[in-house]
């Protein structure tokens, strides 16, 4: 049977992130944590493969202990097993260290045929963990997959979005794909699923999956460092125009652009 790993990350529900207009800071209160929207498509795609041709699905996440309920939610949807990689030593990981840690976790889980990630996580928006994880696992990858056209025990045929259209590609298994929202519409859990998930115990792996004093995890395994964060100052004051002036402005702006070329 096909073995599928789905990578899911918990992110703040950004639709509730509001800027405080007075202090110009992000209002944090009441910001719920949710499963990264792109990862819900990844989970759904795995479930569809399972329904169509049979598969064993393991969801994996690296995060703080409170991520466990999110993993239970994916179990409620029909995912077979859920693994949480959690340890203070993993904290501060950039994309390289995250990919490394996920690869270690996947190594502990065992054999797999297909890894499905979301296109990107909505907190960092990097879209780097998927390809980086594929490289760490020494398997091929495709990003921005909008459709799986064929899948058998040896190969997968995918449609991926490019900057100017689509490509159809065939890839050998085992491999990794990152998926966009185009691929499916995620389901809601069933009552039965929710009941099953209530009893389910999420597997927790700590830094013991790595060697002792492994320098590739957490902050020490992260080549990149954030040295400054700031709220972008939007000094724009909207200038309201009448329709004629707006047309002139558009003409002027698009002309400037033509001359500049």
């Amino acid at each position: 049977m096909m073995k599928i790993i789905v990578c899911t990350k918990q992110v703040p529900a950004t639709n509730e992130v509001k800027m405080d207009p007075v202090t110009n800071t992000i209002i944090r209160e009441g910001v719920e944590a949710i499963c990264n929207p792109f990862d819900t498509y990844a989970v759904e795609e795995a479930l569809r493969i399972k329904e169509k041709q049979g598969a064993h699905i393991t969801a994996i996440s690296m995060g703080i202990p409170t991520v466990a309920p999110m993993l239970k939610e994916v179990v409620a949807l029909g995912v077979d097993e859920a693994v949480l990689l959690t340890d203070r030593k993993f904290a501060g990981a950039d994309t390289l260290a995250t990919a490394y840690t996920l690869a270690k976790g996947i190594g502990k889980i065992g054999d797999f045929d297909l890894v499905i990630c979301g296109k990107q996580a909505t907190d960092g928006d990097t879209a780097q963990v998927g390809p980086s994880l594929a490289e760490t696992l020494s398997i091929p990858h495709l990003t921005d997959v909008g459709e799986i056209k064929e899948l058998n025990s040896k190969t997968i045929v995918c449609r991926r979005m490019t900057d100017d259209g689509y490509d159809e590609l065939e890839m050998d298994l085992p491999c990794l794909i990152t998926v966009t929202k185009e691929i499916n519409t995620p389901r809601l859990p069933s009552i039965l699923g929710i009941k099953k998930a209530q009893k389910y115990k999420v597997h927790k792996f700590n830094a013991n999956i790595c060697e002792e004093n492994d320098i590739h995890i957490g902050l020490s395994g992260s080549p990149t460092q954030v040295v400054k964060t700031f709220i972008p100052t939007s000094a724009v004051e909207c200038q309201f125009l009448k329709i004629k002036a707006l047309a002139d402005k558009l003409r002027e702006l698009s002309n400037i652009e033509e001359e500049g070329n």
């Binding site: 950039d94 994309t95 390289l96 990919a99 960092g124 928006d125 990097t126 879209a127 780097q128 963990v129 998927g130 390809p131 980086s132 594929a134 490289e135 760490t136 990858h141 495709l142 990003t143 921005d144 979005m161 490019t162 900057d163 992260s222 080549p223 990149t224």
Partner: peptide, 20 residues
């Protein structure tokens, strides 16, 4: 699209940092 797919793979192979 290609750069964002290729760069993380390359950076991981070179074991260095990448800012997206």
């Amino acid at each position: 699209a290609f750069g964002r797919s290729c760069a993380p793979r390359l950076a991981s192979r070179l074991k260095t940092g990448l800012t997206a």
